[in-house]
């Protein structure tokens, strides 16, 4: 995603990168659409009583909060506020890790009540698993951005790396906005 060669001096590299990332996001949305449709195809709106709904709400709020800090870090980077940018990225990574821990707790409970070999477990583990792998890859990207930011790679005029990683992170949040009610709330 982070592509910046010198081979296109005349073209607007930033708008090319943005379009490329958006196309990637559109493509990835189709994966989530397939995931969601398989939930309704196989399980309808069935929801086991053991599902931990409050925990679902808590990790949702954590992820939304991480989107806020990601937004703040991008805005700070855009305005040359290096400290604000780094602190907010660090908070985003922290919240992301907290989300992953939350999913881990979920999985422990789920293994006893509806393991992956059961009908609902298949859907639950696949949806949360695919989403968590997106969260993990987003965390890696944010980590790289933080590392490069410490080295002073981003300025208020050139911060595509920050913008790209943050956009991806927001997309992971948007995906969860749909997965959360689909798994935890419909019945």
């Amino acid at each position: 995603m982070v592509e910046a060669t010198a081979s296109h001096p005349v073209h607007d590299r930033l708008s090319i990168n943005r379009l490329g990332l958006w196309l990637f996001i559109i493509s990835d949305s189709f994966l989530f659409a397939a995931l969601l449709s398989s939930r309704f195809f196989l399980q309808g709106v069935h929801r086991p009583a053991e599902l931990n709904q409050p925990l679902g709400l808590v990790i949702s709020i954590i992820l939304v909060a991480s989107s806020l800090t990601a937004y703040r870090s991008e805005m700070a980077a855009a305005h040359g506020d290096q400290r604000g940018f780094r602190n907010n990225i660090l908070m985003t990574i922290g919240l992301g890790l907290l989300f992953i821990i939350g999913v881990g707790v979920e999985w422990r409970e789920a293994f006893t009540h509806f393991p992956p070999s059961t009908g609902f477990g298949t859907i639950f583990f696949t949806l949360t698993g695919v989403h968590a792998s997106h969260v993990l890859s987003g965390l890696i990207l944010l980590g790289i951005v933080l590392f490069l930011g410490r080295k002073g790679r981003f300025t208020s005029g050139s911060y595509w790396g920050v913008e790209g990683a943050v956009k991806y992170w927001h997309f992971v949040d948007v995906a969860w906005v749909f997965i959360y009610p689909t798994l935890y709330l419909v019945s």
Partner: peptide, 16 residues
């Protein structure tokens, strides 16, 4: 999200 949660917990069926 909180509205969603309240709906999901309290409305049995038809909330989707």
């Amino acid at each position: 999200e909180i509205i969603e949660y309240v709906l999901g917990v309290n409305m049995k069926g038809g909330a989707w």
